[in-house]
């Protein structure tokens, strides 16, 4: 019994949250990796693009709510998602046409692009704060739990209750569908293949008659879709705060590099590696050990490796270690 309790405790606080958080990071990391692969720069504005997309979704959610439209047990945000995506695509293409295109035509170095993306990051950052404010916003509605701790305890008679929030299941399902569609697009369709070809060998892609402008357009569209979905799922699961999205840039970059930059499948796995590391290393294992030990212990030690305040330090440490020892990432990506 104690063993089962221990496992449920771990699922509750480590496994399920890691899978959820990992999915959200994965969507972000795939976006960053696609921009790197096709446009060849690390987009620092990505966190704020996610914030912008989520903001649009929140605004439409409010609109729908005021009109009395809802999805029943599902969050209204899912209904607002397509509209948010369209606006985010719009803003991405606006910045591409007005800013990035200018530097592309000038054939600027990747470093210039990074600084330019930093500038866009500040702009987006400000736009989001002006429109929706810097505060925490909870926009989750519908039913909150699939399995609640109390019900679980009553049904099973166990000491530990397993909680599965509906946002966690929604995250998992949405991420699975999104990734399934995306990878099928990249591997099966002519346009998807030409995107990979362009990312792999730009000169030869041009010699094969692949139109770079079309590839860039499609990339921004895909990336905006991923940013909005990833951002909305994160916001539904936790809450929306512009600063948090900016902060998430670090684990997303870490996931991108762990997976091998420019490699979408790697970025997908990278998201989970980072999420599991962050959560597993900051979890206090005292109770878990207590269930497993044959004797009771009164130790005051929480058996926590690192305080949760240092969550980002873990991403950063992984980032540094990977860059030193395996700069191409776990899955072979480009070396930067």
């Amino acid at each position: 019994m104690d063993f089962i309790n221990a496992i449920i405790l771990l699922s509750n606080f480590v496994i399920v949250p890691s899978i959820t958080y990992g999915s959200q990071l994965a969507l972000g990391a795939i976006g960053v990796t696609l921009i790197y692969g096709v446009l060849r720069f690390a987009n620092f504005a990505y966190g704020d693009l996610m914030a912008f997309g989520t903001m649009c979704v929140i605004l439409f959610t409010w609109l729908f709510k005021s009109l009395g439209i809802s999805l029943g047990i599902l969050p209204t945000a899912l209904l607002a998602l397509p509209l948010g995506i369209i606006l985010t695509i719009g803003v991405s293409l606006f910045f591409d046409r007005t800013v990035f295109k200018y530097y592309r035509n000038k054939k600027s170095s990747p470093v210039t692009f990074i600084v330019v993306s930093l500038g866009i990051m500040f702009v987006l950052n400000a736009v989001v704060r002006i429109i929706i404010g810097p505060n925490d916003i909870v926009f989750m509605d519908g039913s909150r739990f699939i399995i609640s701790a109390v019900d679980f305890k009553e049904t099973t008679g166990l000491l530990e209750g397993l909680t599965i929030k509906s946002t966690q299941v929604i995250t998992l399902i949405t991420t699975s569908i999104t990734c399934f569609v995306l990878f099928n697009f990249l591997n099966k369709t002519k346009t998807g293949k030409s995107m990979r070809a362009y990312s792999n060998n730009e000169d030869l892609a041009l010699l094969s008659g692949i139109d770079p402008n079309k590839i860039i357009l499609i990339t921004w569209i895909i990336v905006s879709i991923l940013a909005t979905i990833g951002g909305t799922l994160y916001g539904l699961d936790k809450s929306f705060k512009p600063f948090t999205y900016f902060n998430n840039l670090l684990p997303i970059f870490a996931a991108t590099i762990v997976g091998g930059i420019g490699n979408p499948l790697g970025a997908f796995y990278g998201g989970f590696v980072i999420a599991f590391s962050e959560i597993a290393l900051t979890y206090a294992y005292k109770k878990f050990i207590f269930y497993l030990l044959p004797f009771s212990s009164d130790s005051t030690n929480l058996i926590q490796y690192i305080s949760t305040d240092y969550k980002f330090a873990i991403s950063f440490a992984i980032l540094v270690v990977v860059l030193i020892f395996r700069p191409q990432g776990i899955f072979k990506g480009k070396v930067i």
Partner: peptide
């Protein structure tokens, strides 16, 4: 007019078949 460059003349991360498909892109 088709051109085979001296270096980097294949899509190394694509399968052989995909390489051929890319050649017929237009």
């Amino acid at each position: 007019i088709s051109f085979v460059p001296q270096v980097n003349n294949i899509f190394s991360e694509l399968t052989v078949k995909e390489n051929l498909e890319m050649g017929a892109f237009t």
